[in-house]
Nucleic acid binder design. Structure first.
Length: 584
RNA sequence: GGUCCUGUAGAGCAGUUUGGAGUGCUCGCCACCCUGUCAAGGUGGAGGUCGCGGGUUCAAGUCCCGUCAGGACCGCCA
């Protein structure tokens, strides 16, 4: 190495040592006769002192330099207790510029905000910034820990193909033309789901992988077109086994990186309870304001809006003092979510109810309302009435908005839980809003809970899946299920879904074929690795823990991808070729 | 596909409500001064297609229409 020491490692005991440092000019303080340079490398930074005769005046921010000098304790009174290396400095004897830096598009040092656009275009400079570099290091550490945990549990790391077959999963596939077979296309995997099940047939028993997944859907703060899952599958395992493993993995990560001890075991909540109490399948349980079901309370209401299959309420503490404009704002908020509006009453200080809805309620309804919903004088109560699913969804979103606006969420808290017993099926709705059949909530290989094994096909609206999601602070970070391993049961699922034998055969015949050869009972889980790392680093977006992320339109400001292709490329790739008919 | 927010010097912003000369702030950049700073300090200087196009107007950063880019959300994402 061209250096002898790392700048950030120097301490008082190095005094008198001749050192060679190499790194970047983080800051310079030029006093004419004496020049101070903060020399930064991956380990941290140290102050280098230059005297008149040195050529330090020409050094500029982010020049890459090599410095030879002697470590010494700083003169009395010049220590900087805020820095790890603040007791010492390096008196430079020679400095060599290894490479110069052009003026920077944004400051590397300092805390001023920089637009994400600029950061992504110059991501390599952004990563020089300590906060971003730290996120990369934490992610790396998390990856080591995850590998260690999985190895300790006897899991085999297997890489599955990136160029694979388009399979009928939930999302749109990214497609890759195949020059050798013009007109035929690979798909990039949305997840290694089918491969990991095949590996169970293979008898590996315990598989895991940090798998890159690709989904061609619209992006969000917590979604990228390519993202990473830690993908896990185990044979002869029941739900409790997978859950225990998931807790072991997440527990080690939180303990080793954040020093936080997960409660063990983590609480579990059924999907039905989560929907009823929080209006969400990924409830943020860091605060209360739970939904209150009011359907029976308003069973005989004179208020037409509340004569609905479901009426629910959520309380906003202190919400009665909102201005008319703020209350109108809630209506706009609700409309932006596709609702008609958000009915509300205000519990005034004298206990009387205010707001436009109150006068439509009967006297008895008004009298008992505050007690029933748990509202105090000064609170506002929001209502949603209509279809159960849509109303709870609205109230759940309102609850989160209340939590944010009222500062009810304790950001220092970690609230993990499992959501279990999700429905197997949900109604498939056409454009007109009519039910045209059933669709799977998870994926078509998800097994039913044991008590539904024989009759889920007779009650698709009630049948529960043997599936589980891990939720942290209102975010789904992982999910999985015990799979179907019997052809007969799989066939019944296809029948509920209205998938013909022929169609199933053509779409994933290879899996069904594999399942003819003694498939073991198996199940697994996948964690959104980017989301996990985002939580571990305290980031706001998974882009914060991805070295080279894309923007919301799927554009990479650094490389400029994606780009148009030339006519020659188009022709050679066979983009427009007509496929030869092929059998599978 | 839809809703909302943002776009002004290399970076971060103010100015837009009520149209009147590119008006300003902090940082950075360049030159000079400066021997103990650590967000060093001082003096001077450079740097602008107000995202782009069109319209209204005597006059547009400011008002209107369109468009592009970034962000948040809805739909979508098993």
């Amino acid at each position: 190495m061209i250096r002898t020491h790392e700048a950030g490692s120097l301490r008082r005991e190095h005094a008198g040592t001749q050192v060679v440092l190499a790194g970047w000019v983080a800051r310079r303080r030029d006093h004419g006769g004496v020049v101070f340079i903060d020399l930064r490398d991956a380990s941290g930074s140290a102050q280098v002192v230059f005297r008149e005769e040195d050529h330090a005046h020409d050094l500029r921010s982010e020049y890459c330099v090599k410095v030879v000098g002697e470590v010494r304790v700083r003169p009395e009174g010049n220590e900087n207790p805020d820095l790890p290396t603040g007791e010492i400095e390096v008196v430079a004897s020679t400095v060599e510029v290894l490479s110069e830096s052009a003026p920077l598009p944004f400051p590397i040092e300092g805390s001023t905000g920089v637009s994400e656009e600029a950061r992504l275009k110059y991501r390599y400079l952004d990563i020089r910034r300590s906060q971003v570099a730290e996120a990369m290091r934490i992610r790396s550490k998390a990856t080591y820990i995850a590998n260690e945990v999985m190895n300790d549990h006897g899991f085999v790391y297997v890489e599955t193909p990136t160029l694979t077959r388009s399979t009928p999963e939930g999302a749109r596939d990214f497609l890759v033309p195949v020059r050798l077979q013009p007109g035929s296309w690979y798909a990039l995997p949305q997840s290694p789901q089918l491969f990991k099940q095949l590996l169970m047939v293979s008898g590996l028993e315990r598989y895991y992988q940090l798998a890159r997944c690709f989904r061609d859907e619209d992006l969000r703060a917590d979604r990228q077109p390519e993202f990473t899952q830690i993908d896990i599958e185990m044979s002869f395992a029941d739900q409790d086994d997978v859950i225990a493993l998931g807790e072991a993995l997440i527990g080690r990560l939180w303990k080793d990186i954040l020093g936080y001890e997960l409660p063990s075991p983590l609480p579990r909540m059924t999907y039905a309870e989560a929907m009823a109490r929080y209006g969400s399948d990924k409830p943020d349980v860091r605060f209360g304001c739970e939904l209150v079901e009011m359907t029976d309370y308003f069973a005989d209401t004179p208020f037409r809006v509340f004569q609905a299959p479901y009426v629910g309420a959520v309380v906003m503490p202190g919400g009665a003092s909102q201005t008319r404009k703020e209350l109108d704002g809630w209506q706009d908020w609700a409309k932006s979510r596709g609702a008609r509006g958000l009915a509300y009453v205000l519990v005034q200080e004298d206990g009387e109810l205010g707001g436009p809805v109150a006068k439509n309620l009967s006297e008895a309804e008004r009298a008992g309302l505050a007690a029933r919903v748990g509202a105090s004088p000064g609170d506002a109560v929001f209502f949603a009435a209509g279809a159960k699913i849509a109303s709870r969804d609205l109230l759940g979103a309102a609850r989160l908005e209340i939590g944010r606006r009222c500062g009810l969420i304790d950001e220092s808290q970690w609230a993990f839980l499992w959501i279990v017993d999700a429905p197997m099926f949900e109604p498939a709705i056409n454009e007109k809003g009519e039910q045209v059949g059933w669709t799977v909530v998870h994926h078509p290989f998800t097994g039913p809970k044991p008590e539904w094994a024989d009759n889920f096909q007779d009650h698709p609206e009630e049948a529960l899946a043997y599936a589980y999601d891990m939720v942290c602070n209102g975010m789904e970070i992982g999910g999985g299920s015990i799979r179907i391993h019997r052809a007969e049961m799989q066939q019944r699922v296809f029948e509920v879904l209205g998938i013909e034998k022929e169609e199933a055969e053509s779409k994933f015949g290879f899996l069904l074929e594999a399942f003819k050869y003694g498939p073991p009972p198996h199940g697994g889980i996948a964690y959104g690795w980017d989301r996990v790392c985002m939580l571990l680093t305290g980031g706001e977006s998974i882009r914060d823990v991805i070295a080279f992320p894309k923007t919301a339109s799927g554009f990479d400001p650094l490389t400029g991808a994606p780009t148009p292709i030339t006519g020659d490329q188009r022709k050679e790739a066979g983009v427009d070729a007509t496929p030869k008919p092929t059998g599978v």
